[in-house]
Design a protein around this nucleic acid. Structure first.
Length: 828
DNA sequence: AGGTTCGAGTTTTTT
DNA sequence: ACTCGAACCT
């Protein structure tokens, strides 16, 4: 997939404006940039606001600016902190800057998300926060459990106080930097006073468990800087140049953090686009960017308004849409790109019809215009809309992937496995412990657990301590005591291994395998025949591969560390790279100064990683952190040669030659929850704007007359946003009338192909035959779970093709081609 | 102790 | 249509 490849050949400006300052002399870092881009890149000290419209070369500007600061100005790379919205964006930015720097310079940069920065800082300064470095990060499910515990302790019912509502209130409070006391101080009515009590209790539970939720990561870092001036000084000295991307989606806590870090040197560069602010519901405050010039009256503001991405038509349509937002600063977007095709607005009968139409259309683009599958994306407002289109893509044998990084970790078996690991890494984490204490069943009943917890509370103990000596709980019967003791011994064994373990002798992968085996989890899911899907054990295998992969990355990091050891080595590396980097101008003395800073208080590579990478417990904690902070967008694998499916929110920052937006209907986009609130409706419009502006050449927006919601066929209506698009930019295609004399939904076959007139030609036969040809016996294929395999034989069953495929690891499997996500392996 | 069944709520969007 | 929890059964 072409993620932010903002600047491929075809999207280059045809005639770049001449450089701003000719007297500077030629500079490869600047020569191909436009005036405003150069202005942003060469701005060194003081606040800078870059208002960047979609496709305006924002990423290129940021990466060039980092390179400029390091290479031309001579700023040490470890003084640069670049914050992105997702881990994936961070990785890509680091990669792109790395092309302009030496390897060591690139490594010394800090490029990450707010959350991972904070997770690292919390680890480094854990003692100041009343935590230990092995603290747990709670996801939404863990938070729910903690809230339920709090409600129970306070004798409040989940009926009157739904945990999700309570959590939303707590989250909002934290985003506004309100602790439990401050929140209580602002609560005057009965309901919010009650919430304040829960909040307080919830915090106590997290504290006791040595745990933080997502919001705490930010909140605690803000308090860290506020309450510990020495830490603030240290970090201000470290991060002298701040760059924050997607600034329109920062919340108050992030805003405060950024401003605290920049409070001394004021070298704060923020980039973003108010029209692409789509996370208001998560506490993002669009005013952060709108009022930047008020916060920093001497700020330099640069506007990037030329679009290099989309056709004139697509840009005009998107611009017309966003102009309907009242709360908006006017902005003139323009492009030199060609006019291109009209935006296709398609009305179908129902979601099945919509999916088939879309699949047919994408196939046409692929076959007739040679557009790669990876150049196509399908966006939707809510995740549940992906299912129908998935089925259609699978049936048509079009390769696809879904951007849902969190989905894998949402599976029960994976959550169980992770809970074991978390309970081992952080034995005080009661939420994790409670999840697995009797999973798989090992004779510790809910009643026994309740007794243990009561005992723990009464004697000021942790649950973990009771596992060590269950016999002291007199209220437990012998059988329970034995079961608990047995489990305690297991836990103790793992904890000992992890504490004394050395990653050289015992790899994390080996350890995780050991835990899965000894915990009985593996056997439990292997023998689990009740469930129709036998994927669970495979998923556990995939988790192991994930651990393995993580460990390989760590090993690479260590290797680089060794290589980068001595300064002499660095100079050699520097020279080696000189040939590669024609971009170097003559006066590049800057980088030498950088390498020569013995006073650097931070090791550019290991800082933030509390301790020694060879230690098993450190590895485990880092792995768990990685898992906790994974995002949907991170899951997208570029260049897999597949169509990409994702929510509109996940689409931010990406671009594709072909974009299809599904279910552009009233109630879905804008979502019905935004109906009564004008500002929420404007956010929905921005969301639509974000989706449209991801498209380079082809933009499709579909809607259906009927859509199945909660299993109910419900009438649907095209979105009001569609009516805001200019007529001359769109081509309205009504597919509802074509073959139907009796309205929608007869056989659903009528409009599928030209087969109506062809008499005996079954439309599915074509499909099946195509499949069969593609997967002839002997063909090398790849299955998402079983890996590589070879087709042994093919057989037709009804309208499906059944393939027997031999996999080296899993043996021979019988798969239905239309459903199994088999992919043909192409070799050169 | 542990598994099964039945009903309710569910779908925004995510670090 | 599907998932989760609570009550109910073995």
């Amino acid at each position: 997939m072409e993620i932010p490849e903002l600047f491929t050949e075809q999207s280059q400006p045809r005639e770049p404006d001449p450089p701003l300052n000719q007297d500077r002399g030629p500079d490869p870092l600047l020569d191909d940039l436009t005036d405003p881009q150069v202005e942003a890149v060469t701005h060194v000290d003081g606040p800078l606001l870059v208002v960047a419209g979609p496709g305006s070369g924002k990423t290129r500007t940021i990466t060039r600016r980092i390179a400029y600061l390091v290479r031309r100005v001579g700023i040490a790379p470890w003084h640069v902190l670049a914050i992105t919205f997702t881990n994936k964006a961070a990785g890509e930015m680091r990669e792109r800057v790395a092309e302009l720097l030496t390897p060591r310079q690139a490594r010394a940069l800090t490029v990450c998300t707010f959350h991972s920065l904070c997770a690292r800082l919390c680890r480094m300064y854990a003692d100041r926060l009343g935590l230990t470095a092995n603290y747990s990060i709670y996801d939404t499910a863990d938070q729910q459990r903690a809230v339920k515990q709090a409600l129970e302790a306070l004798d409040m019912s989940t009926g009157n106080f739904p945990p999700s509502k309570v959590l939303a209130a707590i989250s909002n409070a934290k985003n506004e930097l309100l602790g439990p006391e401050a929140f209580a101080g602002l609560s005057h009515d009965f309901y919010s006073k009650k919430i304040a009590q829960v909040y307080k209790k919830y915090e106590a539970i997290l504290q006791k468990n040595n745990a933080q939720d997502f919001d705490d990561l930010l909140l605690n870092c803000v308090s860290l800087l506020k309450n510990h001036p020495d830490v603030l000084d240290e970090l201000r000295a470290r991060f002298q140049y701040l760059m924050i991307d997607e600034y329109q989606d920062t919340n108050h806590a992030q805003f405060t953090l950024a401003n605290a870090l920049a409070s001394e040197h004021k070298n704060l560069c923020v980039t973003g686009d108010p029209d692409q602010s789509i996370y208001g519901w998560r506490g993002a405050n669009i005013k952060n960017i709108l009022e930047f010039e008020t916060h920093y009256p001497n700020a330099n503001t640069v506007r990037l308004e030329q679009n290099y991405r989309s056709t004139k038509t697509i840009l005009a349509a998107a611009d017309a849409l966003i102009s309907n937002n009242a709360q908006r600063k006017n902005k003139s977007l323009w492009t030199d790109n060609e006019i291109g095709d009209p935006v296709r607005v398609v009305t179908c009968r129902d979601e099945q019809h919509e999916a088939r139409w879309l699949v047919d259309h994408l196939r046409d683009l692929h076959v007739q215009q040679g557009i790669a599958w990876s150049g196509m994306a399908i966006f939707y407002r809510v995740n549940s809309l992906s299912r129908v289109i998935e089925d259609a893509l699978r049936t048509a044998a079009i390769p696809y992937q879904i951007a849902r990084g969190t989905a894998f970790y949402d599976r029960k078996e994976i959550k169980d496995a992770i809970a074991f690991l978390r309970a081992i890494a952080n034995p005080t984490d009661e939420v994790a412990l409670l999840r697995i204490i009797n999973t798989p069943a090992r004779g510790i009943s809910a009643a026994s657990v309740k007794t243990m917890r009561a005992h723990a509370v009464a004697h000021q103990m942790t649950l973990n301590q009771i596992l060590e000596r269950p016999e002291q709980v007199t209220a437990l019967n012998n059988r329970a005591v034995n079961s608990i003791a047995r489990f305690g011994k297991l836990m103790r064994g793992w904890c000992d291994t992890i504490a004394s373990g050395d990653g050289e002798e015992i790899t994390l992968r080996y350890f995780v395998e050991q835990v899965l085996r000894e915990s009985g989890l593996e056997d439990y899911y292997r023998n689990d025949k009740s469930d129709a899907d036998d994927d669970r054990i495979l998923n556990l295998g995939e988790l192991i591969s994930g651990v393995q992969q993580f460990e390989t990355e760590l090993a690479e990091m260590e290797l680089e560390l060794d290589e980068a050891g001595a300064i002499e080595d660095d100079l050699e590396i520097e020279q080696d790279n000189e040939a590669r980097e024609s971009i170097d101008a003559d006066n590049d003395s800057a980088s030498e100064a950088i390498l020569d800073d013995p006073t650097n208080p931070f090791d550019p590579i290991t800082d933030g990683i509390s301790g020694d990478l060879t230690r098993l417990d450190v590895r485990l904690s880092l792995f768990l952190e990685r898992v906790a902070l994974i995002s949907d967008a991170d899951a997208v694998d570029d260049d897999q040669g597949t169509v990409t499916l994702m929510t509109l929110h996940a689409a931010k920052g990406l671009e594709f030659p072909v974009v299809a937006m599904l279910a552009v209907e009233e109630g879905l986009l804008p979502h019905e929850r935004a109906r009564d609130d004008p500002s929420e409706k404007e956010e929905e419009r921005r969301l639509c704007f974000v989706g449209m502006t991801r498209a380079r050449r082809h933009l499709l927006m579909t809607n259906a007359r009927y859509r199945t919601i909660f299993g109910q066929k419900t009438p649907a209506m095209g979105s009001s946003f569609l009516r805001e698009l200019p007529h001359d930019a769109i081509e309205a295609i009504d597919e509802t009338e074509e073959h139907s004399t009796g309205g929608w939904g007869q056989s659903g076959r009528g409009d599928y192909g030209a087969d109506e007139d062809m008499g005996d030609d079954d439309p599915y036969a074509d499909e099946a035959e195509q499949e069969a040809r593609q997967f002839a016996p002997g063909t090398l294929v790849r299955h998402p779970d079983f890996g590589m395999g070879r087709v042994v034989s093919l057989g037709r069953v009804g309208m499906h093709t059944r393939a027997r495929v031999e996999f080296p690891t899993s043996g021979v499997k019988t798969l239905i081609l239309q459903y199994a996500r088999l992919e043909k392996v192409h070799h050169q």
